[in-house]
Computed example of a mutant assay.
Amino acid sequence: MGEALIDLVPSADDPEIHRAQPGGAPANVAAGLARLGTPSWFAGALGCDGFARAIEARLTLAGTELGLCARPQLPTALAVADPGPDTTGYHFHLQDTATFRLTERAADVDRFAAVYVGGLAAVVEPAATAVAATARAAAESSLLVVDPNVREDRTLDPERSAHRLRELCSLAHVIKASDEDLVRLWPDTDPDATCRRLAEEGRLVVLTRGSRGATAYTRSAEPVSVPAVPVDVVNTIGAGDAFMAGVLNWLSTSGARREGGVDRLRRERLEEMLGFAARVAASVCAQTGTEPSLPARI
């Protein structure tokens, strides 16, 4: 549940030219899950312009169901990408767009094995209220997965945004966050200490560090780390969302949830999960675009 928008990405041939690429972390995760073979629904909002039609075509082609999408007669939000060597910054055009006119879905959550929330829709009204209500319901009847995916922009109130994202993390059964996310949400605490605290409260917590790999934390095992998969990097946009899709795909197909809960996974299972998700993320980094491919399970 969340935003589907358009990323305007500088062309590799001419940085002055930007190409329009469907994006938004929740939409990326939904499309990624479907491409990996896990049935997914996208609960967002699609507008009335050509960008919305491109987003719809992308999600439909991936195999994502759109029956929970709102259809307001408004334009699509834009995110102007500013890629760096390790991460990508954004400048947003969000106001008066269809993207954040989400419908609350609390009554629908028990239909699904997992509900994913986070990102811009979790902090931009009127979507934020709908996301919060849906997340509270999902925490009671489903597996609530949160990726805070913290964004900074002149149009966003950083303190209010951080408060909303911390509340979602407090409800979550699974948290996937980058080290940058955690520093922004808990600036006075080392990310490793934050992850240990969140895991001790009964969660599976996955910390991603880009090229430095990823670490999983639970209350029943010592943290488990894997390195990033070596790859000639073409693109980093969508890599974190591909990693998230890899984690969810693994949880849904490995039988892990029948082994006592996601917060009680054994060390070797955590290593298997992280390695698989890292290979999914690498499949995005090695190409243009944000569509992951299914790696062989090792």
Rank of each mutant, 00 (worst) to 15 (best):
A228G: 14
V150L: 07
A121N: 01
H93C: 13
D96A: 11
R264A: 14
P223E: 06
R279S: 14
A43Y: 12
L66D: 00
D188Q: 13
Q21N: 11
L156I: 15
A286K: 11
A121S: 15
G2A: 01
G23S: 05
F92P: 07
V115S: 02
A62W: 07
V150I: 10
T215Q: 09
V145Y: 09
V234C: 12
S40G: 01
D192L: 03
S225L: 05
Y90L: 07
R266Q: 14
W250S: 04
N149D: 14
R267H: 14
A106Y: 02
E180N: 13
R154K: 12
A4S: 15
L5S: 12
G67M: 09
A127C: 08
T236I: 15
R58P: 00
T38P: 08
A282H: 10
L294F: 10
S40N: 02
T64M: 11
P295Q: 09
A45Y: 08
D110P: 05
V284H: 08
A214G: 11
V229Y: 10
P26M: 10
G32Q: 11
A27V: 13
D188F: 00
I237C: 04
R203F: 06
A199Q: 02
R257V: 06
C48G: 02
T194A: 11
T208C: 13
R19A: 13
V280G: 06
T134E: 04
V280H: 10
N249F: 09
L204E: 02
I17S: 10
A79T: 07
P126H: 05
E125F: 00
A25D: 11
V224M: 07
A133W: 03
Y90D: 07
T288Q: 15
I6L: 12
V109Q: 04
T38R: 06
Y116I: 02
G275I: 07
F42Y: 13
E259D: 14
E3G: 07
W250C: 00
G119D: 04
V226A: 08
A27C: 06
G2C: 05
G23R: 07
A133V: 01
P26W: 11
C195E: 04
V284Y: 08
P126N: 09
L61T: 15
A114I: 03
T236Y: 00
T208S: 13
V224A: 12
F92T: 12
V123M: 06
A77H: 06
M244I: 13
E140R: 14
E167Q: 14
V115P: 03
D110Y: 03
P85I: 01
A45F: 03
W41T: 15
L248D: 03
F243W: 13
S293F: 09
S178Y: 04
A278P: 08
W41E: 10
S141L: 04
E167S: 14
D241W: 13
P10N: 05
A278H: 12
I175F: 08
A132G: 03
R269T: 15
F243I: 13
C195V: 02
A114H: 01
A121D: 05
S178E: 01
E3Y: 09
Q287K: 14
A296T: 15
Y116C: 12
G289F: 11
D192K: 00
H173Q: 15
T38F: 00
Q73F: 00
V29G: 04
G275T: 15
Q73S: 14
G37H: 09
S283W: 08
V205C: 08
L46W: 05
P148D: 04
A70Y: 03
L5Q: 07
G275V: 11
S170Y: 05
A57M: 03
T155P: 01
